[in-house]
């Protein structure tokens, strides 16, 4: 047994991006072969939100066409959903990899020139934008860009170009947050 004390566990560097991408590609390929579908993320949160709204205000949820699509016929819990379980796995896998690389930290990721509250406010705003954008585009970077990109889906490639376009066009205004 190693005698290293806990506090001196050093953060390990990240993986070479090409090999991480190769691993990610193999996971995606497995999903295609085993399930016949790609990966995703935002759909799980939509299902969770729809379920939560349904339990608080059932009439409101079933009356809304957007929620109704994610609620199903009520014969099984809407949370018994492929993406919900997949995203649970994402949390587990991310934690596992973070633990193995000693990268578990309760910190706020930001550049040196921005305060914590400002960064958190921007994170919340970015999340809200992402929620709207992902639902408008029928998917997020995982479901559309990654999975659809590998399937040569027309809409996914249009989407991907727009994501990079939007981000690069807006990056200059937010340089204080990151650089």
């Amino acid at each position: 047994m190693s005698s290293t004390p806990d506090d001196s566990l050093l953060e390990k560097p990240h993986m070479n991006p090409y090999w991480a991408g190769f691993g990610l590609g193999l996971v995606l390929l497995t999903s295609f072969v085993v399930m016949g579908r790609g990966l995703g993320a935002s759909g799980a949160f939509t299902t969770a939100v729809a379920t939560a709204v349904h339990s608080v205000a059932p009439a409101h949820a079933t009356g809304n066409a957007f929620y109704a699509e994610y609620l199903g016929d009520g014969s099984v819990s809407p949370l018994k959903d492929w993406l919900v379980f997949e995203v649970l796995g994402v949390f587990v896998g991310g934690f596992l990899s973070g633990a193995l690389g000693n990268r578990l930290r309760f910190t706020i990721e930001k550049g040196p020139r921005i305060s914590n509250p400002a960064r958190l406010a921007l994170a919340a705003a970015g999340g809200a934008l992402m929620g709207v954008g992902a639902k408008l585009a029928l998917g997020c970077t995982s479901g559309q860009a990654l999975s659809g990109g590998a399937l040569l889906n027309l809409g996914s490639w249009i989407f991907m170009m727009c994501v990079f376009g939007g981000a690069y066009a807006f990056a200059w205004f937010l340089r204080r947050q990151w650089l």
Binding site: G94, G98, R105, G126, M130, V132, S142, C162
Partner: peptide, 28 residues
């Protein structure tokens, strides 16, 4: 949606999938 998502990406710093991973590793 892609344009909004791109702006959201650079404002928030994550996309939905990566934010799960960042939350799981303790990033507030």
């Amino acid at each position: 949606g892609g344009l909004i998502l791109g702006v959201g990406f650079v404002v928030g710093g994550y996309c939905p999938g990566t934010s799960c991973v960042s939350a799981a590793t303790g990033r507030i």
